[in-house]
Nucleic acid binder design. Structure first.
Lengths: 238, 238
DNA sequence: CGTGATCTTGAGGGAATTCAATGTCGGTGG
DNA sequence: CCACCGACATTGAATTCCCTCAAGATCACG
């Protein structure tokens, strides 16, 4: 009937489940004065740090959403496999980011470690109970959800733009979140980026090359990108 | 540099602001036993009903988000004009739907009446104050935001699909929300649908014709659509 | 019944995908 | 140390889907 490629065999391994909960939980002490907000404090008190190797599943689609997660180190992706075999990435989460809270009773996405990752895991029920008592915590949970909603709205706006605009927006977003100066270290593969932006891996690759030849960026190695001309990227982004 | 059409002159009127607050507010009595949930009750107690003629602006982009809105009658669209002149529709809101709450301190979208509409307007501060006291109200506000987040996630999944899949999904969504049996009365124009789905008006029109010739739907008049074969639409939707 | 708005239909072009092949990098073992 | 291998990334050619542009059809309304 209609196109939209199924999973290529040479990339199918990406969708094979990986054994989870690979390392035992570690109780986590509150680390001094670094955390001021009530929510962050409570999470660190109540949570346990888990380690996940690259590509390990953190939680699966359709599982009960019993926990919230906060990235301590490494990077995480949430994703969904569509019935036609394609994968849509819900979001990338870097140290400090919280994920898993945006979902209802059951997760609508799965989550995997992009790189080896340390994740703080908190029982959702404990946190909502706390929110019942502490209005500040409740407000912060609400703010978190609103923030995620805003990011989703931005995704919608992103997905109606051209490939160049999507890639440029992505680079600027990553630069804001994970850059040292103008150098962006991407933890994710081209396939991850493509599935995030709703493009193919080839289009992402070609677009990066195109941005490079227009002197907006440099790509010294495939996972490292240097922003040479942010305003040009912003202009594309429009 | 790159394509993506600006606003066609023959449609420019759609983006011209219209005088707002056209009719005086009316105090609104709680209508008996029909409203059971605490949130709905409170809103009806605290709110005032406003009437907006077709295409009137309800609130504008970048305005402080002082109020929440609940559709009583008619239909409403939220939208955003991109810098290249295109319009993205954030959502359609039908009687019973609440809008305006998903936004932060300032609205990130504008809202307009699609048809003549009656809207219950509630001061946000009153509601959040109430939520501070009444945990049930707070929980419902949170649920509302989560629901909107879910819908945005669905939009993201929608926007990476083909034109056929987008239109089919749209029809099924509208059928769930506004259908009498299999007959869907669309309050919005083809342009609205196109801007909602990230397509052009021509593609929407052609896709509907295509669905009709495959016997999945009938289009007796441009605003009325009969679903003849939901499973075929669902199959496309995949 | 004319006029403008909305919708449909057709032809042509362009951007992104598909398919296929080649290139690069990091590791592992000879 | 180098050769080989798999994973990942890039590049090219052909195709397809959707957009653009243009013209006609339909509808609502004065």
């Amino acid at each position: 009937m209609h196109t939209q490629t199924a999973v290529r065999t040479d990339q199918f391994h990406r969708f094979v489940p990986v054994p989870r909960n690979p390392s035992p939980p570690t109780t986590h002490a509150l680390d001094g004065a670094s955390e001021r907000e009530p929510l962050a404090q409570s999470m660190h008190l109540m949570g346990a740090v888990m380690s996940y190797p690259r590509n390990a599943e953190i939680f699966g689609d359709n599982e009960p959403a019993e926990y919230l997660y906060k990235v301590i180190g490494g990077a995480v992706r949430t994703y969904k496999i569509l019935s036609d075999g394609r994968r849509q990435i819900g979001g990338f989460y870097l140290p400090g980011d919280i994920f898993g809270f945006q979902f209802a009773e059951e997760h609508t996405f799965s989550a995997e470690a992009i790189t080896d990752a340390k994740v703080l895991v908190i029982k959702r029920s404990a946190l909502t109970a706390l929110a019942g008592c502490d209005a500040a915590v409740a407000r912060q949970l609400f703010a978190l959800t609103s923030c995620e909603l805003r990011r989703m709205q931005d995704r919608v706006l992103l997905l109606i733009k051209s490939a160049q605009q999507r890639v440029a927006s992505f680079l600027l977003e990553m630069a804001d979140r994970a850059a040292a100066g103008n150098v962006v270290e991407l933890p994710m593969s081209r396939q991850d980026i493509a599935d995030y932006l709703g493009l193919t891996i080839e289009t992402v690759s070609r677009t990066l090359r195109c941005l490079e030849s227009s002197a907006a960026i440099e790509v010294p190695s495939s996972r490292r990108i240097v922003l040479r001309n942010r305003s040009a990227l912003n202009r594309l982004n429009s």
